[in-house]
Design a protein around this nucleic acid. Structure first.
Lengths: 348, 348
DNA sequence: CTGTTAGCGCTTTCAT
DNA sequence: ATGAAAGCGCTAACAG
């Protein structure tokens, strides 16, 4: 409707002051007389003035209060929740977010990053598409724009990274089982040589000794991180002299297998035998695996990532290679078809 | 690392040309000599120049290539998919999107809209928070920024709206049942007085007559849009002289009830009796209701919304009150706990 | 406390 | 085909 944008000059003229005064009012500067301020504000409202952040930004060399978020698969509800968590803190910190979905394509991701840069983002949170290389983030880092990678890390990139803490997660899970009264808790499934396996077993072991329980090696049955692996593991576990009554499974897949194996042995998982499984969200095509899962709280992780980024933005100087961890123990009620799974947090 | 931003002047100096020439190169103008262009581009790359869209935008009075998207609940995978659909078309049209989650709060939504306006969005797609009023969108519309409302509509607002087409959806669903060989298809559940009910029944009726089948009123059993309503409806339906062999249910809740009722009568839904239910996405707390559901394809809807907005942006002039429809028939396989439901489209 | 005067980085006539 | 100069809407020194 309105022919042309109303600017500070317009409102200055209408209020009978100069543009600078208007500018000061806009910035809520205390240097301006109360009466003038009121008059200016009135005119602003009256003329329907809208502040032009682009112009302001051009002048101030301060950074833009726009932050970029790129997620590799927004379709996956994990990442959607992640984005929601970020949105929460960004919004209350007065930032707006460019959110894009790379759909697991590095090319797309590259384009989006370029575009965001042209728009002058103050920082970037990235859940990298598979195959992202350090070079993709190089220019950003070089121009001093803070970057936080979440969920996956980018090898060789000098950016802060936030991923789940396997050790703490395993510990929490075992504590949970201990709190249920279990004393013989196995660690089932997974391939023994991997870092992740080691970290999780470490958490399992430490939680047990923390509780004054034994953590004999025979209770660690590494097979494969698959359903079949889970079946094999529980079969062997049940043959043990003092058979365990609960298990932490390496994997959601393995946890499934363990349930299968239990049923085959005439035991009902969740009633006769407690099973907890890591929910490997990164690969999560399947959800709601076992009766109880250990998984990161996506919104919480999103919030942490956002806070981390804001801290770096405010610090002015980027301090890369900050590795942070974040895991929560979540209990998911198993549920029948037709019901969404409601998750409830058990421990922080 | 770099002290200050490199600008057109820098690259002009380095390339031994003037800023205007650089500007022309940036816009891929044909008016510039091939050799010069190459040299300039080389320098651009070398100095790591990044285009400043903010500045460009300030000068050109053309609208920015930023569009705003606000959804009421990004946690709901329907809306996440919706956003993904929008992202697809926006990205390929060279736009970037501000995406925000109003989390069903009108205040938050208002703030976000204000912020987006200050950033000079070219258009807005809004899945309104409950309680959104026309006044909330007034200023946007007044300043000529196109707005498309999706999923829900804002009463009295002069904006384009895109929601699901109940009539077409019902028609598609019935056609599907007809194609399975059914000839006695009931319409079960729902409260008879509502617009939505009428639209769906209309679709049901027209599809039947299209197929040369009778659509007697006794096959329409309006009860309540609840599980209990579904049970009641199927009980009555099965007592009919020529009992139906299939049903389109008003609701996901009702469809559930119908399944309950069928089992109580010793029939297995999906085998002895085909049941299709509308998936009332707007209220969707529960998913995967019956064996087969009619629901909009969220990504498709997102794409349509984006296209609609782009059309308006390009048209220059906003032409409000455009009501568009969009529904797809989707078959969801029912699945046990622990499996994600994979949806497959049956008809467009 | 308020007005003047320069620009921020870019595009755009208008000359050349 | 390229350069000079003006200006988009705003803020940041300085003066008054």
């Amino acid at each position: 409707m309105n022919k042309s944008r109303v600017t500070v000059v317009d409102i200055a003229r209408a209020a009978g002051v100069s543009k600078s005064t208007v500018s000061l009012v806009l910035q809520a500067s205390p240097l301006v007389n109360e009466a003038t301020r009121a008059r200016v504000n009135a005119v602003i409202r009256e003329l329907g003035y809208v502040y032009n952040r682009g112009a302001a930004n051009l002048r101030q060399s301060a950074s833009s209060r726009i932050i970029g978020i790129i997620v590799n698969d927004l379709t996956n509800s994990f990442f959607a929740e992640l984005a929601v968590g970020m949105d929460m803190v960004m919004q209350s910190a007065g930032y707006v977010q460019f959110l894009s979905n790379s759909a697991e394509s590095v090319d797309r991701q590259r384009e989006v990053i370029a575009s965001m840069r042209e728009h002058g983002i103050a920082g970037l949170i990235l859940s990298p598409a598979r195959g992202t290389e350090a070079a993709d983030l190089k220019p950003l880092a070089a121009s001093g724009i803070p970057v936080v990678a979440v969920v996956r890390n980018v090898v060789g990139a000098k950016v802060s990274t936030l991923f789940s803490d396997n050790y703490a997660g395993a510990k929490d899970a075992v504590r949970h089982l201990v709190s249920l009264g279990h004393t013989r808790i196995a660690f089932l499934g997974g391939i023994a040589n991997t870092t992740v396996f080691t970290e999780r077993v470490e958490g399992w072991r430490d939680a047990l000794s923390e509780a004054g329980l034994a953590a004999p090696d025979r209770l660690v049955i590494g097979t494969a991180a698959s359903r079949a692996g889970g079946v094999a593991a529980i079969e062997r576990a049940l043959l043990l002299p003092e058979a365990p009554t609960a298990a932490l499974c390496f994997n959601d897949a393995a946890a499934f297998g363990v349930c299968d194996g239990l049923r085959a042995a005439g035991k009902e998982p969740g009633r006769d035998f407690a099973v907890v499984g890591f929910d490997d969200v990164i690969e999560a095509e399947t959800a709601v695996p076992a009766l109880t899962t250990v998984s990161v709280d996506p919104q919480g992780m999103g919030r942490r990532a956002a806070q981390l980024l804001l801290k770096q933005i405010n610090a002015g100087r980027v301090e890369p290679e900050t590795i942070v961890s974040s895991v929560r123990l979540v209990v998911r009620q198993s549920c029948g078809a037709g019901q969404t799974d409601r998750t409830r947090r058990i421990s922080a």
